[in-house]
């Protein structure tokens, strides 16, 4: 009986791991929260979605008291996307509703998530870790748009956002 239970639990863990229901980060990268705005990949002009040489998309985002930059993230559907995000001050949460994307932005470290959005649509991206008095006002939007529409946008700009 107990062997069955253990077997079931191990099986569930393996299934969750293989199907990316849990997303442990595979390696660690660091970023100095005090100087992210001055140099490196998280400077203001480098944030947003970038198309890589292999056709995948990298989204760079920053969490700070009390907003995400960019405020609106635009990504293509059915395309491998790598999210790279960090915090400029305290621990923030990074969650995209309607998906299993959920991690934390810890100052000093870069959160890296390989994801894929199946269908176009709109999601909210609230900070899900209490980060101070303005926490409840801290969220961003994620717009998943058609692959072709994204390619049209990407031809005009090197970093894409949907901030209005």
């Amino acid at each position: 009986m107990s062997a069955c239970t253990v077997g079931l639990l191990v099986g569930m863990a393996i299934f969750a791991g293989v199907h990316r229901a849990v997303m442990p980060q595979a390696w660690i990268e660091t970023a100095n929260p005090r100087t992210v705005h001055i140099a490196g990949e998280f400077i203001e002009s480098n944030l947003g979605s970038a198309v890589e040489a292999d056709g995948s998309v990298t989204v760079r985002a920053l969490g700070q008291q009390f907003s995400f930059t960019p405020q609106c993230v635009v990504v293509p559907s059915d395309t491998p996307v790598t999210i790279r995000a960090t915090s400029a001050d305290v621990v923030h949460g990074f969650l995209i509703t309607g998906t299993n994307i959920n991690t934390m932005l810890v100052p000093g470290y870069i959160s890296i998530l390989p994801v894929k959005f199946k269908t176009p649509g709109e999601h909210t991206m609230p900070c899900q870790e209490f980060c101070g008095l303005g926490h409840e006002g801290m969220w961003a939007k994620v717009k998943v748009i058609d692959k072709a529409a994204f390619a049209t946008l990407a031809a005009k700009q090197r970093r894409l956002t949907c901030v209005e």
Partner: peptide
């Protein structure tokens, strides 16, 4: 209070 539904934290939080 700000306007949490419109992504605005309160002025007084900073």
């Amino acid at each position: 209070r700000g306007a949490a539904m419109r992504n605005i934290p309160a002025c007084s939080s900073c």
